[in-house]
Every structure is written in C-alpha cells, then in structure tokens.
Design a protein around this nucleic acid. Structure first.
Lengths: 120, 120
DNA sequence: CCGAATCCAGACCGATACTG
DNA sequence: CAGTATCGGTCTGGATTCGG
C-alpha cells in the first residue's frame, strides 16, 4: 500500500485527518501519559510538563470526541474526574511507539543536520 | 520502553521534536510522495494537492535542513531541481506507514465518534 | 478540584506579484 | 522552471479571571 493516496481529496484522506489530530503539541503526550492507566485532571496537569489548563481541557475534549479517551465524572465533593484510554485509544499506542522508537534512534542525526545547516 | 519520557524536558524530548516536525500539514504528504523516487519541484507541486508554492519551498527547505531530503540543482536553462529522500528520510517511511495503516483501519470509527458528539 | 470564558500576541499560511 | 517577497486574514495557545 502506498503511503499516500493519490486522489483529488489527498488533502482530506484518513492519513491527513489523523495527522491533523495527533500533530498538535499535546495529543500524543497525553495519550502516552494515559498509557499508564486512568488518571485525574490534576495528575495529567502535573505529569504533562508545560501544558496549560486550557490546552489540557481542550485536548481532552477532542480526544473524548474522537473516541480515544473516556471521561468519567464522579459526583462527589470535591469533584473527581478520571480520564482513560478507550480500546481505540490503546490501539493507537503501537503505531505511535514506532514513531517514538524512530525518534530516539534518529533524532540525534536530525539534530546534527539541523545544526550544520544552521551554521551555514 | 515507555512512550513518553518523564523528565523535566518532556516537552523537549525527541518524540516532541519529531512531532513538531511531522505534525505540520505537508511534511508527511511530501515524504510519502517522494517515496516514489526523485522528483522535481513542479512534479511535487502537482502531486501534492492543495500545497502552495510557498509552503512547498518552505517544507522542502526544512526537510533538507533535517537531512531527510537532498536537493540537487542542475545548472541548466531552464533550471531543473530534484528532490530525493535520503536514507534517513526513507527510514522514516516504515513508522509513518504504521500510522497510515492505523488511520485507514480506524479513522472511520473516529469519524463516527466525532459525528455523534457533534450531534450532542 | 475541575474546569469555562475571555482577551490578545504571535505564528501560520494562502494569495499575489515579482525575479534569475 | 523554480523560486523570493510581501501582505493580511485566520488560528493557536498562553495568561488570566471566574464558576459549580
């Protein structure tokens, strides 16, 4: 199978939509963090370094809408909300892992190349 | 190996930098197109639907800086320039393929989920 | 504790016009 | 053919403030 589908809607093919989804700054980090099991909002906030409350909320909502994460609110005082990967969400871990492995093996080369072209 | 590295630089880990790279609208489409072999600027322009000249140039320059693509200019009239994946660039095809496969298998579910939550 | 809502600076990117 | 330069709208996302 070719990597890209050459049709008039290539800019709207599944690959393109997936990349729209995971291409933002936080989605993959959140999925990777939730790999360890259900987690509360405040836990995620602490474990995902640098994320703002707004983006955490926003990204979780998107993941929920996409069916990758389930949100469970417990009607307690104080409120407790847990987020957990769905089966669909977990099925995305393997392909992401392939990318992460590539990154850990090759990003040094990429960085070297960047540095060299920066010098020029 | 965990998907995400939990250190103070999690927002700057290799995975993060890779995603910064391939997360934009065109990078993956270009790499996928160049899978078929060396290609000229105008060919790329035609095959990657919807890309503007500006973004094509810009994305190719980034890919070149990262060592994923080589640019070869032939001093002819009219000018001819060819772009080709490096070994490093080609090594990225497999992990990307894993993502594309996931997308083709599961994006319908994601879309359904989106539609349902949109209705609500 | 878990968010929602607002404001706003800056990045992104398409369109257009021009060049060797 | 293969770009470069510039303009301007859109979108992102951080900071802040407020609510249940």
């Amino acid at each position: 199978m070719a990597l890209i589908e050459y049709d008039p809607y290539v800019h709207d093919c599944p690959s393109r939509r997936l990349l729209d989804r995971i291409g933002d700054r936080w989605t993959v980090l959140l999925i990777g963090t939730l790999e360890d099991g259900p987690m509360r909002f405040s836990q995620l906030s602490r474990r995902v370094d640098g994320i703002s409350q707004k983006m955490l909320t926003q990204t979780l909502r998107s993941l929920e809408a996409d069916g990758l994460v389930v949100r469970t609110a417990y009607p307690e005082i104080p409120p407790r909300v847990e987020y957990e990967l769905t089966d669909l969400g977990r099925s995305l871990l393997a392909p992401l892992q392939a990318l992460v492995t590539w990154a850990s093996e090759h990003m040094a080369e990429v960085q070297d190349s960047r540095d060299r072209s920066q010098a020029a």
